[in-house]
Amino acid sequence: MDRSFAERRTQSIPRPVKQKRMARGFWKDYQLYLLLFLPIAYFIIFKYVPMYGAAIAFQDYSIFRGVSGSEWIGFENFRELFAMSQFYTVVRNTLLLNLLDLIVSFPAPIILALLLHELSTVWFKKISQTILYLPHFISWIIIGGLVYQIFSNNGGLVNNLITSLGFESVPFLTEKNHWLLVYLGTGVWQSAGWGTIIYLAALTGINKELYEAAEVDGAGRWRKMWNITLPGIRPTIVVMLIMALGKIMTIGFERPFVMGNTLVMDYAEVISTFVYKVGLQSAQFSLATAMGLFQALVGLIFVIGSNAIAKRMGEQGLW
């Protein structure tokens, strides 16, 4: 097959000339490359270098012998892990909480972004965004304390109000189904505002002339939102959904650990708390690493599968 003129011209340039052009381009925009240094260093140090420790999952690891000196035992840790009844409980709880979180929390920033986009008063829009962003910067330890102060059975703000009206107190934090509602609602409150940033950025890329043409045709706000705004941010929604599905087996440690208690362990015991108890409290490092490797593998399968489905549906996908 014939090559294009641009390809032939590029290949005809001598290598030293190419190198000089690359060096000139680097020094021309060196500030931008310097900005890339910190995120690249972060991923190398905290994401790629720790992959060396994944070998622990296939060893009878000893902190005294290290990774290089520990005995290799193949897939024995995975066999032990899959034989534990608690393993299936924590996997079920992780999938359940993440799936419900996806159903409840994923649409929330989209709806908020659409509402903020429709605000015409600039100062009110900025104040609203600031207030919505604030929960993201609050530690889960503090959020957990607030939740207990508001929803606890004895002395909680909500239950005090309920009992003052003559009703019985509601076990928000000690009964599984009520705890689940509080867990999901707290997650929406903490993450929805921060999640609007990406969608608001996507909304700014929609051509304003489309709205003007729709107004000429007599379209109202709802019609413009349905036919212009949502299709305009659909690629962003698909990408964010694929990334969320990739984290379906990954759950943060702080939220279930802080909000959980012994009465709701049927739901609150998840992979991250299991790894904490097995790996740090019981010092079974190989077993905890095997769980982490299994978790990463399932997440990879979800990412590849969801991206393939998105491609088949005609969306852009991640790659």
Score class of each variant (00 low, 15 high):
Lys277Leu: 13
Gln59Leu: 09
Ala296Asn: 13
Lys176Tyr: 00
Met240Phe: 14
Ala310Val: 04
Lys18Cys: 01
Ile251Asn: 09
Ser286His: 11
Leu293Tyr: 12
Phe294Ala: 14
Val91Phe: 02
Met291Tyr: 13
Ile56Val: 12
Leu81Pro: 00
Pro256Arg: 11
Met240His: 12
Gly305Val: 14
Thr289Gln: 15
Phe37Ala: 15
Gln284Arg: 15
Gly53Val: 08
Tyr52Arg: 09
Thr262Gly: 06
Val238Ser: 00
Ile73Pro: 06
Leu95Gly: 03
Trp194Pro: 11
Tyr42Glu: 10
Ile143Gly: 08
Ser4Cys: 03
Ala310Glu: 02
Thr204Ser: 12
Leu293Lys: 07
Pro107Val: 07
Val270Tyr: 02
Leu100Pro: 04
Trp140Pro: 08
Tyr133Pro: 07
Trp140Gln: 06
Ile73Phe: 07
Ile251Glu: 14
Ile111Val: 14
Ile73Ala: 06
Gln149Pro: 01
Asn227His: 15
Arg24Pro: 00
Leu35Glu: 03
Phe78Asp: 00
Asn177Cys: 04
Arg92Trp: 07
Gly144His: 12
Trp179Gln: 01
Ala23Cys: 10
Lys18Glu: 08
Ile103Gln: 06
Gly187Cys: 03
Phe167Thr: 10
Leu210Val: 07
Ala108Met: 05
Gln190Met: 07
Gly305Pro: 03
Ile142Asp: 09
Tyr276Val: 11
Leu99Val: 10
Leu173Tyr: 07
Gly166Thr: 00
Thr204Tyr: 05
Ala244Trp: 04
Pro231Ile: 00
Phe46Tyr: 11
Thr250Val: 15
Ala113Trp: 03
Trp140His: 01
Ala83Glu: 06
Ser70Ala: 06
Gly252Val: 10
Ala268Gly: 03
Ser70Asp: 03
Gly53His: 15
Ala201Arg: 05
Phe43Ala: 06
Leu146Ala: 11
Leu173Gly: 09
Trp226Ile: 08
Ala288His: 15
Gln281Lys: 12
Asn154Cys: 04
Leu146Ser: 13
Ile271Arg: 01
Glu71Leu: 12
